[in-house]
Design a protein around this nucleic acid. Structure first.
Length: 275
DNA sequence: AGTCTTGTTCGACT
DNA sequence: CAGTCGAACAAGAC
């Protein structure tokens, strides 16, 4: 599923497909619940005729800054994918929102599960305001993570997944970061030492950068698997250290990787080196 | 053919 | 209030 590195990959691919600078000429919606707009009828007025000035990422949101001043967001949730295709291309039955551009291409939201959302105009403000720190920002340092883990008393894994504290981590990269930092996913956040918090901060940045470097994680061929534009697979799946490696040996100590449930989430870790 | 699974958000409950 | 738990979302896998 798309987490920070996957969303970053999609943003990079959108830039490579030259959507920046294009004017929006039409919007077609085939599954209304995929769109959050206020009021819903103003979608055309908010988008059509405006130019996409910049595409960027905040947490797991794709942000489209428009000119004149407004924006829309896309959150891919579990199985959402973005396509940029000729507007004449036949619509797939899972393509729920099509945004036509001046150059006769379309940005299409494809989602078998229909959980992905497009936030338009006023509705695009709230989601970004609720987000916490950007983990890859240079200003996000060990001391910042330490302050966050000390500010709450809960298991470290759900804390890392809390988008209002740190924006962009999901199940995959959280498990990867905790393994790398040798921290047990169920350990109480307040019990982390200064040293552990520093290691975890470094681990978070490292696993996210690695994910971006290999254009995201695509596991298997299922419908909720991640693909970027052009059905391009991420190559980070082969490089995961713990996620979905339960039953296989730990790459550090050889102990068998375990799968447990933490905060109702499937969690992969090494019982030997993560205490 | 019904049940389970999946990630995220949100609301209810403790 | 802070944290935990479960529901809802939707469709594919089994």
């Amino acid at each position: 599923m798309p987490e920070l590195p996957e969303v970053e990959t999609v943003v990079n691919d959108l830039k490579a497909h030259n959507v920046e600078g294009q004017r929006i000429t039409a919007v077609r919606i085939f599954w209304p619940r995929s769109v959050h707009s206020l009021p819903h009828r103003s979608i055309n007025a908010t988008l059509i005729g405006r130019t996409i000035k910049k595409v960027w990422r905040r947490g797991k949101y794709i942000v489209f800054d428009l000119e004149p001043d407004t924006r829309f967001l896309i959150h891919l949730r579990m199985s959402g994918r973005i396509r940029v295709v000729a507007k004449s291309a036949r619509r797939d039955r899972h393509e729920h929102v099509c945004i036509t551009l001046k150059n006769d291409t379309e940005i299409r939201l494809h989602d078998t599960r229909k959980f992905a959302r497009v936030y338009i105009g006023e509705k695009a403000k709230g989601p970004l305001e609720k987000l916490g720190r950007e983990p890859l920002a240079g200003t996000f340092e060990a001391a910042d993570l330490l302050a966050i883990v000390r500010s709450r008393s809960r298991a470290i894994k759900p804390l890392l997944l809390d988008q209002s504290l740190i924006a962009g981590l999901g199940n995959i990269y959280t498990d990867e970061a905790l393994w790398r930092a040798k921290v047990h996913p169920a350990k109480k956040s307040t019990a982390l030492s200064t040293r552990e918090a520093a290691a975890l901060c470094r681990a978070i940045k490292a696993v996210l950068r690695k994910g971006i470097k290999y254009c995201g994680t695509s596991l298997g061929d299922g419908d909720n698997n991640f693909f970027s534009l052009g059905e391009r697979r991420g190559r980070n799946g082969d490089r995961l250290t713990v996620y979905q490696r339960n039953g296989q040996p730990c790459l550090r100590c050889g102990h068998m990787i375990a799968r447990i449930i933490v905060a109702q989430r499937g969690t992969h870790f090494c019982p030997q080196c993560q205490r």
